[in-house]
Design a protein around this nucleic acid. Structure first.
Lengths: 240, 240
DNA sequence: GCGGTAATTTAAACGCGTTCATTTTGAACA
DNA sequence: TGTTCAAAATGAACGCGTTTAAATTACCGC
């Protein structure tokens, strides 16, 4: 529910602030709806009046860390032109940004695998954040020394986003001090990814590259619903 | 808690049966501990006497579907020798096996991303199941026409297991009728994976392959704890 | 300022997973 | 057969996320 009065605006703000504070201080499980309400000086029902679920509050938390990540990327994206450096810079900035939340990252990120959850990166609720994320990887590619054309150029940002989610999945399970292994994984896989991308369009690899891109295209074609259709086709589907 | 009397054995069995039935009938959320206890003709405390948490009951459910999957793979592993066919057969058998559980798969599999959860495939509780799974992919490779040697041969089963988890992640989010897109993804990526594996040891790809395998080795070296150490090192760590 | 109506706030309630003090059971031994 | 005691079973209780009916508040046209 969007606030419609000035006071409501303030209440909503207090709830969100309380939630973000508590998530930082106590992690996901330690952040209960009752505690959020108490700190915000309101009632639990009020929190639900503005946010449909606890997950939506966490979603706001994600959005904020994503903003921090974007800011942390600006330097490297402005100064580096080598693809490897740009990609590594973005990934390291990401790991730096999310580092404070590692101890409760599991619960925080696990729900991302649940198709019903608002935290799922493919859900409608996450679309703005995800769009911004692939946009970031588009900048990584376009400002780099890679000279790509054709379908690979179009699809690469999405592929890099998926790859970056893989790094995060690894990070979630990383128990090494300072998440050393995750930084190492990022560094080393960046080298490999860059080499793969650079040779993808060379003659010996062309058929394989073509097959992979063709697969992506086909899967998109089979995509059951995109944002625009979902409402109109709902009735059609049930009657068909 | 392990049952120590014949009657206890029966109680434990009734609880497990009730849980598996309900998971099939009503999915994860519909399967409450109270309902499990009622159907088993016992109390909720009793269920907790034998199973530490609801997650451990689900873990038993996993183990059973994995057994079904193994059985469903026997035919193709006995008759086919082409690597592509063996891998595709195993993946299709997997999708077939888990198909009945798709509607509640999200909640069922999401917890796999939580490092604290007993369902996490890297957790100690899941180790037997995971060992069996990589063992399955070892059979896929070893009974095939692939002529591999060296580190790639040793690591390939683990890599295939990770790849297969990726297919499952896709399947969880797949909303197409009959999970068409997932089957298609499996078919097509198998072709790509097979081609990648076959060319990995060819001269032009050697350096890249070597780099990737070196990365795997290094990450294993940094691995913070393996099953054997965890207890002894716990004290050391806290005092260091 | 006032009254009406829509927006906001509240507290109680629900069912959930989990815990625990307590009671009951049953097998081994006298 | 009766006694003992670990094993097994119980149900009330806790805090959680979420829902809801009812009460209160803020705003707008008079």
């Amino acid at each position: 529910m969007k606030p419609k009065t000035a006071k409501a605006e303030r209440t909503r703000g207090r709830i969100l602030d309380a939630a973000l504070e508590l998530l930082r201080e106590r992690g996901y499980e330690g952040t209960t709806m009752r505690r959020i309400a108490r700190r915000a000086g309101t009632s639990v029902g009020s929190a639900y009046y503005y946010f449909p679920s606890k997950g939506h509050l966490v979603q706001a938390f994600y959005a904020r860390t994503h903003q921090e990540h974007l800011a942390a990327c600006e330097d490297v994206l402005a100064s580096e032109t080598r693809f490897e450096r740009r990609l590594a810079g973005v990934l390291e900035a990401k790991l730096d940004t999310i580092a404070p939340y590692h101890r409760f990252s599991g619960v925080l990120f696990k729900t991302a695998a649940d198709p019903e959850s608002p935290l799922n990166p493919f859900s409608d609720d996450s679309q703005p954040t995800r769009r911004q994320a692939t946009e970031l990887f588009r900048r990584v590619v376009e400002g780099s020394d890679l000279d790509l054309r054709g379908p690979l150029a179009r699809k690469l940002p999405d592929l890099l986003w998926s790859y970056h989610m893989g790094v995060i999945l690894f990070w979630i399970h990383d128990r090494s001090p300072g998440m050393r292994r995750s930084y190492r994984l990022a560094q080393r896989t960046v080298e490999i990814v860059a080499r793969l991308v650079r040779i993808a369009n060379l003659p010996p690899m062309r058929p394989l590259t073509r097959a992979a891109l063709e697969l992506l295209r086909e899967l998109e074609e089979l995509e059951p619903e995109t944002e625009a259709l979902s409402k109109e086709t709902a009735d059609v589907r049930t009657s068909g």
